[in-house]
């Protein structure tokens, strides 16, 4: 069962083993977000549909370099906190700080793929660059981070379906940054699929709707 709820709305009544994004008030569980309520299997949770990207250790994100110092780069990860990449994160070995300059490796405005390695003081997010850390592509889109989490966590289905139907190469960050490789037509198709993601709240419906929108697109261009 899934239902759209707003803050303060009762999501479920009774006793549940676990719950998230709700406040428990006696027998009642109240949502603290606009979100999709999921109740079942002893669990009650609300999947939020808006709000900033909240970094979690292990997340794969795509961020933009906004500042480069000799030994650290600041990365805009589309969140309320900054991401940082330390120079030595690029290398297995220790580096000599007196002779190293990170600005020879990364530039302002570069998109970088990385994993969230650790979060300090709840505020500073340290990133470990991906093996293919330099993100190259033909287009970049931003979708709401909460929605991105939808496709991120169900990567196997939705993300691969979009790839399959558009033929484009896609890298998706849990923080809502989507980088696409492909020609203009493929980019346009991906954009249409992402528009569907942005306009709907129901995950199951989402999957089918994307298939529908993209297959329709294929037909219209064949004729």
């Amino acid at each position: 069962m899934s239902k759209l709820v707003v803050p303060g709305e009762v999501v479920a009544k009774g006793n549940f083993r676990s719950w998230s994004n709700v406040l428990k008030k006696g027998e009642e569980y109240l949502s603290i977000f606009v979100g999709k309520a999921e109740v079942g299997g002893g669990r009650v949770r609300v999947v939020r549909l808006s709000g900033p990207y909240i970094p979690k250790v292990g997340d794969f994100v795509i961020g933009m370099v906004t500042d480069v110092q000799p030994l650290a780069a600041t990365i805009d990860i589309n969140s309320y906190v900054n991401g940082y990449i330390m120079a030595n994160a690029f290398f297995k070995r220790r580096i000599d700080p007196s002779r190293f300059d990170l600005s020879k490796k990364v530039n302002l405005g570069d998109l970088i793929a990385a994993k969230v390695q650790r979060i300090e003081r709840g505020k500073d997010v340290y990133l470990q660059p991906d093996q293919k850390w330099k993100v190259e592509g033909d287009a970049v889109f931003y979708i709401s981070p909460a929605k991105a989490h939808y496709i991120y966590t169900s990567r196997s289905r939705i993300s691969s379906k979009i790839k399959e139907l558009t033929g484009a190469e896609i890298r998706l960050g849990a923080n809502g940054v989507v980088v696409v490789k492909g020609d203009l037509k493929k980019i346009e198709m991906v954009k249409r699929a992402l528009d569907v993601v942005e306009s709907k709240y129901d995950l199951n419906g989402l999957y089918n709707e994307i298939i529908k929108v993209l297959s329709k697109d294929g037909e219209s261009t064949d004729s």
Partner: peptide, 22 residues
């Protein structure tokens, strides 16, 4: 806005085809 290198490339490539990104 600080426009990412990828996005800037996207804008320029699209302009080269006589179109805008929107």
């Amino acid at each position: 806005l600080l426009v990412s290198a990828v996005r800037k490339e996207q804008i320029l490539k699209t302009l080269a085809q006589g179109k805008r990104v929107d």
